[in-house]
Computed example of a mutant assay.
Amino acid sequence: MKKILVVLTNATRYQGTTDATGLWLGEATEFVEEVTKQGFEVDYVSPKGGFVPLDPRSLKYADEATFSIYESEDFQNRALKYSMQPKDVNPNEYMAIYYTGGHGVMWDFPHNLELQQLSLAIYNNGGYITSVCHGIAGLLHIKDTNGNYLIQNKKITGFTTTEELLSGKKSIVPFLNIDIANKNGAIFQKVRAFRSFVVQDGRLITGQNPFSTKAVAQTLLANLK
């Protein structure tokens, strides 16, 4: 069975504020569009399971293809209303796990041990761990069976400090991706702000920002053929 596990956030706002956040819609829909066209099935999981909020700003950037998936009964139910809990996921069913972004993930992805265990199980089965934008937060603290950070000495990318600054969120995010990546031994790479950019190092595939979503999917697909 050709399946990919898509990870979504449950965080509704920037912690300590009333500023709404959540899933950046296109980072889910654009990925899903690409992989399902090639015959892969997707399932959706979130740290708590159940309700997944949308970052309201992401709707401004939604095109017809994104709205088509967003409005579908399948996405509304399996992704946004009734996403799976990590404990209900069998990692042996998946060829890859994909961490979506949206600023909310910076609070509920980094230290979720259940998601880390799922990711490591998929990876140790020969599968791929992938992310886009802030989704890199889900990879930053995964440790291998020897207790070493999985990203140590690996080339990765994610939403940059410059992009946080340009988004007006640098002062309210709990950390900067590059700081944790460097602290945990990764080789953080980047290009100009808001340009599509994907880095692959072995079976880790990461994208810098929302404009990298389709390229992440296409890179993964090229490896799964």
Rank of each mutant, 00 (worst) to 15 (best):
A193N: 09
A96P: 03
F51S: 11
P210K: 00
A186S: 14
Q152Y: 04
G26H: 06
V132K: 04
T29F: 00
L120A: 00
N223H: 14
A62S: 10
A217G: 12
V6A: 02
G49L: 01
G50A: 02
L59V: 06
K170H: 10
S68D: 12
W24A: 07
V52R: 05
T100K: 09
Y61K: 07
D179Q: 13
V132I: 13
E27V: 03
G138P: 01
G127C: 07
I136M: 13
S196R: 08
W107Y: 15
Q15Y: 03
T160R: 02
Q38Y: 03
Y149D: 05
E164R: 02
E34Q: 14
S196K: 11
N124S: 13
N153F: 11
E114W: 07
W24Y: 15
F40N: 00
Q76R: 15
K87Q: 12
L220C: 11
L165I: 14
E93S: 13
D55V: 05
S196D: 12
A28E: 06
R192F: 10
Y149Q: 04
F211A: 10
K225E: 11
Y149G: 04
T17F: 00
H103V: 06
R78Y: 11
S212E: 05
A65H: 08
N177M: 15
L59K: 14
D108H: 09
I205W: 05
D55F: 08
V132R: 07
E93T: 03
N182G: 03
Y82R: 13
I178S: 05
T206S: 14
G126C: 10
K37Q: 15
D43N: 12
W24P: 04
D43I: 00
G185F: 11
D108T: 07
N77C: 03
L115T: 07
K3T: 02
G135Q: 01
E34I: 12
A65K: 13
L220M: 14
I156F: 06
S72D: 02
E41H: 10
Y98D: 04
Q208Y: 02
T17K: 02
V173Y: 03
T12K: 15
L54Y: 04
G49Y: 04
K183C: 01
T206W: 03
N177G: 01
D179P: 03
Y99W: 10
A28Y: 07
I129R: 04
G126P: 08
T29I: 06
K183A: 15
K154D: 06
L120F: 04
